[in-house]
Computed example of a mutant assay.
Amino acid sequence: MDLSWQQLTELYWSGAKCEVNLLLIANLLGGLLLGSLLGYERWYNGRAAGMRTYGLVCMASAAAISIIGYSGFWYGGHSPDTVHGDMTRVAQGVLTGIGFLGAGMIMKEGLSISGLTSAASVWMSSVIGILVGVGFYGAAIAMTLLCMAFVVVVNRIEHILPRRVSLFITIRLDPTHNWSVEKLAARLERFGLLLHDESVSIQADQVGTRWTFMISARNRRTFISVVDLSRDIMAADHIQELDIQPARN
């Protein structure tokens, strides 16, 4: 099929095509703005994924969905009857792909899991982009503001509500010292700490014995600081190495 330059220009740069491109550009800018706004909250709280990641995810989602709505204009609109986009499949593919991106943001070390909120919010940014792409601008703005408010407000509420402070501890003992779960629980009881028996893991070699376990404070208000706890634990001469991490999830 031979087309002249004038015919190609009319296909790809016609007045209707320019209007569609302007609307798509507006959707891209809207997705970029809303995604960056959502990412600011994560960036403000020191998370690895910030405004750039969220902005790009939201804009890409908006672009992928927006072009499906104008399948009649694909390839210059020369053969609109042969091109039909399935928006549900595209949305499914976008959400699945962003799910893999979110999975890479989740970090697990022992019993400590971090990145779940960031993974959920970056997936949320793709949904916001989809809303922008299909033209639900009010819902996209409301969803962005609700997500930001929810994360900020609930984070403050969690610090007010009663909860148990949990720590993930790894201790290397002298090979000549005999420890037992009962002795460990009794020692921690003096500090107001509860040992989770099901979390105890023991590894032994010629250098010594490595105990890994999770503890929780019986009362958050009376819980001593991590620095004081580590100082009291290291006071025992049979402990060679100590590692304390927050058991986040």
Rank of each mutant, 00 (worst) to 15 (best):
Q7C: 05
T9I: 12
L11N: 08
W13Y: 12
S14K: 07
C18V: 14
L28S: 10
G30E: 01
S36V: 02
E41C: 07
R47N: 13
A49E: 02
R52P: 05
G55A: 06
A64M: 12
I65G: 00
I65A: 03
I65R: 00
G76F: 03
H78Y: 15
T82H: 14
T82L: 15
G85P: 04
V94N: 01
G102F: 01
G102I: 04
K108P: 01
K108Q: 10
L111I: 01
S112H: 01
I113L: 11
G115I: 10
G115Q: 06
L116M: 12
L116N: 02
T117D: 06
S121D: 07
W123G: 00
S126L: 01
I128W: 01
V132C: 11
G135T: 11
G138K: 15
L146I: 15
V151D: 03
V154Y: 11
V154Q: 09
R156H: 12
F168P: 00
F168G: 00
I169D: 00
T170G: 07
R187E: 13
R190M: 12
Q203C: 10
R210F: 11
W211S: 07
T212A: 07
I215P: 00
S216T: 07
R220T: 08
I224Q: 13
V227A: 13
V227R: 14
A236W: 13
I239C: 08
E241F: 15
Q245I: 03
